[in-house]
Simulated scan of single mutants.
Amino acid sequence: MKKLLTVIVPAYNMEAYIENNLDSLCQEDVLEELEVILVDDGSTDRTGKLADIYQSKYPNTIKAIHKQNGGHGSGINAGVKHASGLYLKVVDADDWVDQKGVRNLIDYLRIADSDVVITGFYWAYDDGSGNEQNFRRKAEIKQPFKGVIYKKRYEFDEVADKIYVKMHGLTIRTEILKKNHIVIDENCFYVDTEFVLYPVPYIKTISFLEDFVYLYRIGRNDQSINPDRMMRYYDNYSKVLKALLNFYKQCYEGEISCSREKRLYIAGVIARVVAGNIKILLAGPQGNDSKYNLKAFDDMLREDYPEIYLSNKSWPVMILRMSKYSLYSIASKILLMKNRRS
């Protein structure tokens, strides 16, 4: 029987979390239609051994892949190569799924005729108790856009100016990734945006489910979204941003066929990455060189990528631009205070 949904679980040294992840996925009533590809990315703890144990327990559902360490993107790329399900979703190893939500997603995928299905996700605040079911949850986005009709098959271009798709909410036809050779950066953090944007030119239709499927763990000190860690790995963030700008340029110049609606959607998402880039630099070591480099980057963006430049909705970026960067130090102090509180 062909699998309906492939879930890729890229994992590096995740022995503390992987059992909760796999237990949430491996429900008796969905096993026949579910494929879980656990990619052990060169782990040095018990992650690989646990992967093999779960593969033995669920031989028709779980595939354990062991490879040399290549980073989060490498794990996803490897998983896509081995995926056989009609649809595909990525669930990070320290996160997990709502069991009712994933059952409802699979039920819908049986009848879905959309390239992409979007579901909700919760931020789950890790309180250190180890009891994930009791973590406080918060929906980052309560509904994809005002007036959405759930389970309706929309043309992507019809709603492109209303939505912002994150990796945690994305379920996509596997064929789109394979046929168009979608590959994201390896040995690099912050590649989620590559994964959700690179397929956009090839997506025709999209549907939305009311269910919240994904639980995204918040609060680990070693998470890539930790402010200190983001500064430490700024080169990774910068690398991804350059790749995204190059991708946008290919769409803009017609090297990749892309409708105007999709291109503007891509520009808007990249504008969010640009805002993140500026915030990281604002929170870093200060000095005239930092201010000059940041302004030079923003000027380049205005000249070479006006659609991305004009798509900005971030208040720190707006303040900097309106003040012609004279409020650089103040914006930096505000961000530093905000990071200390978070």
Rank of each mutant, 00 (worst) to 15 (best):
Y54T: 08
G70R: 13
I163R: 00
N69E: 04
N104S: 14
G79M: 05
I62M: 08
N134A: 14
D126G: 05
V90P: 05
A93R: 09
R153V: 13
Y150P: 05
S56N: 14
R173A: 11
E155K: 14
N69A: 13
G73S: 06
D52A: 14
D126Y: 08
R153T: 13
I65G: 00
F156M: 04
V159A: 01
V80S: 09
V165Q: 10
E132Y: 12
Y87N: 12
A160R: 08
G120E: 01
V117A: 06
K166L: 15
H82M: 15
V159I: 14
L105F: 07
K67N: 01
Y164K: 13
D98S: 11
I53A: 12
I184D: 00
F189C: 09
K63V: 14
K81A: 13
K67E: 01
D115C: 04
P144E: 02
L86V: 15
Q143L: 11
L177F: 06
D157A: 07
Q143Y: 12
S84H: 09
V97M: 13
R153M: 08
A93L: 10
G70W: 06
V97G: 04
R136F: 13
F121E: 02
G48R: 13
W123D: 11
H168L: 12
T119N: 10
I141S: 03
T171N: 10
K63I: 14
G48T: 05
K152H: 11
G70N: 13
G73Q: 04
G130I: 03
V148G: 02
S56C: 12
L88T: 12
Y125P: 06
P59E: 02
N77D: 01
D94H: 09
T61Y: 00
A139H: 07
Y164F: 15
I118S: 07
V80I: 15
Q133G: 14
